[in-house]
Amino acid sequence: MAPDGPPSATGRAVSCTDLVKVFDASGDPVQAVGPLDATFAAGHTTALVGPSGCGKSSLLRMIAGLERPSAGTIRIGAETPRDLTRRAALAMAFQDAALLPWRSVRSNVALGLSLARQPPDAARIERLIGLVGLAGFNDRRPAELSGGMRQRAAIARCLVSAPELLLLDEPFGAVDELTRRRLNRDLPALWQGTTAILVTHSVVEAAMLADRVLVLSPRPATIMAEIDIPLPRPRDEDDAALRDRIAAIAAALRDSGPDRVLAAQ
């Protein structure tokens, strides 16, 4: 690994078997997921694409150990999600960045280490802030940053603890189109080699970031199609081969439920 390369290069395969999630908060049970079988290859980035409300976030939250499956199992290597969180070996990025507003960028990134019960490492924190392109903003508060910069800081916080599994829940969903393009181009190199699972409703984003795309059906979520994206990085949105993949994902999505296509875009 080059001295300036990505800080983590170990990943684990994730497998879901007969996975079901039923929400029953109001006495009116809603099946959000499954039964669903899926595997996520070690060291690869897999994107989950599906119409709004199809249950893809629930799937991600179960893998993160934030929700318990109603039935079925999730294994990360040989471990359960809870085992992994107990070792603080996974990290999750949220749509709203989830930076604590009273902490500076540096301190927010440092939180990734302290929550993972790892010793503080100023040099490593500095290096990650530099890698996500926030050098010089160490002492700024989140309120002083643009949406894209906040997401960069959140990604740095995820990576600082060298997680074995990276979960991204529409991390660039709330930033503008131009910023989003730039983040899609710059950031994937940072977690190359780590197993990453990305939830998105953007077909383009899935094609830009992932090695493989799983297209989910409307609720309850099941896997409708798998599309490999064997293209080199960094990728270019206007590249013909990528356009071809984007069209394939969009077609699979259209087949998954005609009336959901508008919501999906």
């Binding site: 939250r61 993160a64 934030l66 070792r87 949220f94 709203d96 929550l115």
Partner: peptide, 12 residues
């Protein structure tokens, strides 16, 4: 916000 609590929980 829910995500701040999820963040802490996701580290176990």
């Amino acid at each position: 916000p829910r995500s701040w609590l999820d963040l802490v929980e996701s580290y176990g």
